[in-house]
Design a binder for these strands. Structure first.
Lengths: 141, 141
DNA sequence: AAATTACCTATTGACATAGTAGGTAAATGG
DNA sequence: CCATTTACCTACTATGTCAATAGGTAATTT
């Protein structure tokens, strides 16, 4: 299960991507548009800053902004950073202690195959692939 | 992340599949071979019985046995039953309350696509596809 | 100086995970 | 018939994670 942290982070990144022409975006605006508690988003955005995905500046006129353009982020790198790992079983998680059953475990190849599928899927998607895919329009027609 | 419940359940099923010629297999044997606490396996096997995946008989000479042959189980049905859902985000989980953002959510199509990938992967694998895939041998050569 | 914004530490309630403990019921072998 | 083996059942618990909330300080602009 992908947690709110990863999912909200992606939505914040998307929101920033779609409003990048407006300069630095206050978190308040993102929180309102996305209908997510601003307080909670603070925690998430802090990690996005630490990961160098976004930059923030304080004060009036401040806010957050992407560091790169939307097509230069993969969904995978964002999720992996926020979730800690994309691995679906503990024994395949980076930094996990080596399981003594590796080698004889009959299920490990299954998990490894699924892990690769997952990794390839999310690293194959770019932030720019997701913009403008909601069915409801923002303004018009 | 797939929990121990699903992973252990799969290993129990596999163990039973590989020893089905020996008739009813005591859980004690499975626990020893798989190096998993028998007490914990009891909980898991109870659910396998409830799901009609295995049958158990009490008393001396008793134990557990698969209900069908190994090629008639998909990995997906076993995991889904044990984990409750295979869905990777809450809003796609069966029985989840409908999210008011469905329709405007820009990330939903991504999760839906990944969900389908996951579902197809695990339902495309059969128990019999996993037998005999550990590298280490049981006895010999 | 006032307002706005990011940034930081700490805390919390709810829930799931991964078991453990200690029994009862059923079936068999001797 | 009785001891043994096995499944089956209820309850408990420690630990950790999740999803926030609370209440501040620091930076920047007008």
């Amino acid at each position: 299960m992908i947690s709110t942290k990863g999912r909200y982070a992606l939505r914040v990144m998307l929101d920033l991507a779609e409003h990048e022409s407006a300069g630095f975006i206050p978190l308040k605006d993102v929180a309102e548009r996305q209908e997510i508690s601003k307080k909670y988003l603070e925690i998430i955005v802090r990690e996005l800053v630490a990961a160098n995905f976004v930059v923030g500046i304080s004060g009036k006129g401040g806010g957050y902004r992407l560091c790169r353009s939307a097509e230069d982020y993969t969904v995978g790198e964002i999720l992996e950073r926020m979730e800690g790992t994309l691995a679906t079983v503990a024994c395949l998680s980076a930094g996990a202690p080596l399981c003594p059953r590796t080698g004889s475990c009959e299920t490990l190849p299954l998990w490894a195959e699924y892990d690769k599928l997952t990794h390839d899927f999310f690293y194959g998607k770019r932030l720019s692939d997701l913009t403008g895919h909601g069915q409801a329009a923002h303004g018009g027609a």
